[in-house]
Design a protein around this nucleic acid. Sequence first.
DNA 1: TCCCGGCCGTGACATTTGTCAGGGGCCGGA
DNA 2: TCCGGCCCCTGACAAATGTCACGGCCGGGA
Lengths: 210, 210
Amino acid sequence: MSGGSTPIRLLLADDQALVRGALAALLSLEEDLTVVAEVGRGDEVVPEARRSAPDVALLDVEMPGLDGIAATSALRVALPTCRVLVVTTFGRPGYLRRAMEAGASGFVVKDTPARQLADAVRRVHAGLRVVDPTLAAETLATGASPLTERETEVLRTARGGGTVADLARALHLSEGTVRNHLSAAIGKTGARNRADAIRVAERNGWLLGE
Amino acid sequence: MSGGSTPIRLLLADDQALVRGALAALLSLEEDLTVVAEVGRGDEVVPEARRSAPDVALLDVEMPGLDGIAATSALRVALPTCRVLVVTTFGRPGYLRRAMEAGASGFVVKDTPARQLADAVRRVHAGLRVVDPTLAAETLATGASPLTERETEVLRTARGGGTVADLARALHLSEGTVRNHLSAAIGKTGARNRADAIRVAERNGWLLGE
DNA sequence: TCCCGGCCGTGACATTTGTCAGGGGCCGGA
DNA sequence: TCCGGCCCCTGACAAATGTCACGGCCGGGA
């Protein structure tokens, strides 16, 4: 596959400098791969990609500035020829769905053996799709978020803690409305608590989008 | 420091295979370092260390089976000559304190530049202590956990969600007692909620120990 | 020895939370 | 056009939560 000609150019985005560097070291061992850029924030992805023109971008989901999903969308618009491989810590079903919808070509969890990463990169570069099979099944089973937009927003805000009154003030809603949304969210998630609902929604990746 | 003689033998412990492999690649680039073992669970650290006799062990804090702190203690007992360098995602003040108390020689956050890791390993191997200065300051400021043993236990159990009745049943306590402990914990953490208290305690690393 | 603090429990109380039954406005599809 | 879904609000209710004051049991230090 690597005919000794031009290697695949990679951009790495991960907020943890240590893993970022380690991934760079790992991938640089492959002679048909070369890391041309590293960034630690989501909002640096597009500017840096413009400068370094990578073939494939490895994006973490959890990043400051802009999450990996949003960065994927932006990058697809700015550099349509650059493929995106999303690498994340959490195998949350919603993440995979959102990533694919945003235009990612692949989705890999950080649990996967290190040896497979280079292959994933090559596959993605070749125009194929790479998806963790376990996660794909789970995604289909879990389905998209059942939460309405407001419910999601309320839950997201409630994540930070605080009483109903606090939430109502922050969201410019009535306390009763906030309670109703929370109640609906609790029902839909099958939780028994507000805290429970937040945990469920978070685990499924339904709380993305800042 | 590396006289071309025997290299420093390393054991890596991290539950994320990808990061583990990447770290191995990164550290293997240094000619005075060699990775002799990799494990993905805390309870595999000691058995594997017995077999491979490493000079330095790099342990993640968040691991299944046994957390990195507990693994540190166990390793210090089993192989007193093997130094421990704790590497973690979260810069929680309590983690650093607990790690040092457990006998770790160094503590590094995954935010630190990749280039410094090898140096940290060498320092630790040389008998020096390596500590993130920012974190050290924060640790002193935050201080040890103000929570009593039972309060910690109750909070830890409450983390999983569930009502007071559930907690009481799980802990073989009366509901009133559980409420009292929770109330005390809420007061001590300066939180306004149970959920809030859990978040604060967790962020400070006061909820360790399974 | 006494005292203090952690621990366990009780009971009562105010507050917060979650639920339910309404009502009205908006928009898009049948 | 009407209907259904989402959104916002109200009001009321039961349940859960958080607080307080109280008492008793223990163990360690002054």
